[in-house]
């Protein structure tokens, strides 16, 4: 099952709709990284609200997506991890170290907006100092 990826302004939003196989997850990773370049995206949101399980392969793929996107100049936020899923992840020992998360899509968008604002401020600060 392919994950639809929407473009919204400078952001890409991948909304997982149903359970994903390992191949689906790998496909999502490739598609997102390619599109970050094609659309010059500044932010990526992966909405996992519909995932009822996150195992080590899923977590690893999400981490890879975030790290690869960052190398391509784009910030990633994982949104919608359900409470029970979070509980099982912690028991498994799975972490999303170095990856931003937000409660839901709205919070994720707000987070990215703040990140973009910070980038602009830092950018202009550099000009003033220069």
């Amino acid at each position: 099952m392919e994950v639809p990826i929407l473009k919204q302004g400078h952001y890409l939003i991948a909304s997982i709709q149903s359970a994903l196989t390992d191949a689906d997850l790998s496909q999502l990773r490739e598609a997102l990284i390619e599109r970050v370049g094609r659309f010059r995206a500044r932010g990526v949101i992966v909405d996992v609200t519909a995932l009822d399980v996150m195992d080590s392969f899923a977590v690893r793929t999400l981490r890879d997506i975030a790290h690869m996107a960052r190398l391509r100049g784009s910030e990633t936020v994982i949104v919608g991890i359900q409470p029970e899923v979070a509980f099982a992840m912690v028991q498994l020992g799975l972490t999303l170290k170095g990856v931003s998360t937000a409660l839901d899509l709205e919070e994720g968008l707000a987070f990215l907006d703040r990140q973009m604002q910070l980038r602009i401020e830092r950018g202009s600060g550099r000009i003033e100092r220069g």
């Binding site: 399980v53 359900q82 029970e84 099982a88 498994l92």
Partner: peptide
């Protein structure tokens, strides 16, 4: 409970993989 269902599903996912 649905929490236990998720826990069971996660364990199966790891072992089946």
């Amino acid at each position: 409970s649905s929490g236990d269902q998720t826990v069971i599903a996660a364990a199966i996912s790891e072992i089946a993989r």
